[in-house]
Structure formats: structure tokens, C-alpha cells
Amino acid sequence: MITSTTMNNFEHTFEEYTQEYLPKRLEVFKSLIGKAFKVKDLFGKGQGEKSIIKKLGRLSDFKGVYAFIDDGEVIYVGTSEKVINRLSYHVKGYTKYQAHLAWELAKENNLYTDKKNKVPNLDKTKRMIMNMKVLFMEVTSPVERHLLEIYSCMYFDCKFNFFETHR
């Protein structure tokens, strides 16, 4: 039986999350699409995390949700306790966990340096990412962050999100 009571470790009831908080957060998230940053403007050559944080007028990195936008379409939504750090890994990382979107773009576009062994051409896919836009929103509640990530992925039909690694 599902009840409307607040469970341990949850700040709100299921009904509050699904009927109030997530729809409101999604509307704010959608409103940021037109104000998204060009990835290359934030993470271009010589741009480290500290300089990006300063450029954004912040004192430190922050917890939140982010999205990559390609040709006006949200293609990937993620969450992190350090959003700028996580975005840096998408752009500058090399493992499939660090640069998840780059690896998925390689599979989608058949971009490999070694097709037989499926070694992705991360240089090409990272250039693709650098030509995208990115938006992010601070969300301090871990429950809201994770729910909003999934809710947004479903809303935008993000084909590059997989949740097998979420534990």
C-alpha cells in the first residue's frame, strides 16, 4: 500500500515530488535552454575549473543537474555533487565513465580509432561536444537531483543516458 507519509531520508512525499517539485524544477530547467552556455566558451583551451567557477560568478563548485544540448535538442542529462568538475571530465576525460557522452557519441556515429576493438575516437567526439551547449542548475537535495535527472531524461527522451551505473 502506498501512503502519503514522508519516508525516512526523503524530504517530501511521493505525491509532492511527482505533482509539485519535479514539474516545477523541470520548468526552470527548460527555461535555461535558451540561456545555455557554449561548451567551447566555458571549457576551451586554458580554461580550468577554477577559472570557469570564477567566470560564472561563483565561489566554488556546486551540486546540481546539467544537460548537453545539440542543435537545440537536450541529448544528455546528468547530476553531480561537483557540476563544473563533472562537466570538465565530459570534455577532458578519457575513460568511459569520465567521458561517458563522448564514448556514446562514438558508438552512435561509428567513430573509432580501432573499429575491431571498438576504441572510440574521443578527439572527434570531444570536438562534437565542444560545439554543443550546456546548461546547469543548482539542486542541493540528493533525492531531488537524482529524481530530476531521470524525470528530465524521460521528458527529453535522452538517448545517451543509461542508469546501470547508478547504485
Rank of each mutant, 00 (worst) to 15 (best):
T113R: 09
V39S: 01
E104H: 08
M154A: 05
W103Y: 12
I52W: 01
E149R: 03
Y97R: 10
L105R: 00
T113A: 04
I84N: 01
L101W: 03
D123L: 14
K45D: 13
F156T: 03
T140M: 10
S4C: 11
L42M: 04
S31Q: 12
H100G: 04
S31C: 08
G48A: 13
R58T: 06
C158V: 15
D41Q: 11
K133Q: 12
I52G: 00
F29D: 04
I33Q: 08
E144P: 03
Y94T: 11
K38H: 11
R25S: 09
N9E: 07
V119F: 12
G48K: 15
E27A: 15
P23N: 04
Y151S: 03
I52R: 02
W103Q: 01
L135W: 05
K82R: 09
L148G: 02
K124D: 01
N121I: 03
G34H: 13
T18R: 02
N9V: 05
G93S: 02
L105H: 02
T13G: 04
G93N: 02
E11V: 07
H100N: 12
D61L: 03
T165R: 15
K40I: 10
V77I: 09
M128P: 02
Y66A: 00
S80Q: 07
Y97S: 14
D70F: 14
V83Y: 01
D123H: 13
D61I: 03
N117C: 07
K126Y: 05
E108M: 12
L135S: 03
V119K: 14
N109A: 15
T13R: 00
D123A: 15
N110V: 12
A67Q: 00
K115H: 13
D70V: 11
H146L: 14
D123Q: 15
E164R: 10
C153K: 00
M130A: 13
H100R: 11
F162G: 08
M154N: 08
K92A: 02
S152H: 07
Y97G: 14
Y151K: 02
R167I: 03
T140H: 11
A99C: 06
E27T: 06
P23R: 08
R145Y: 11
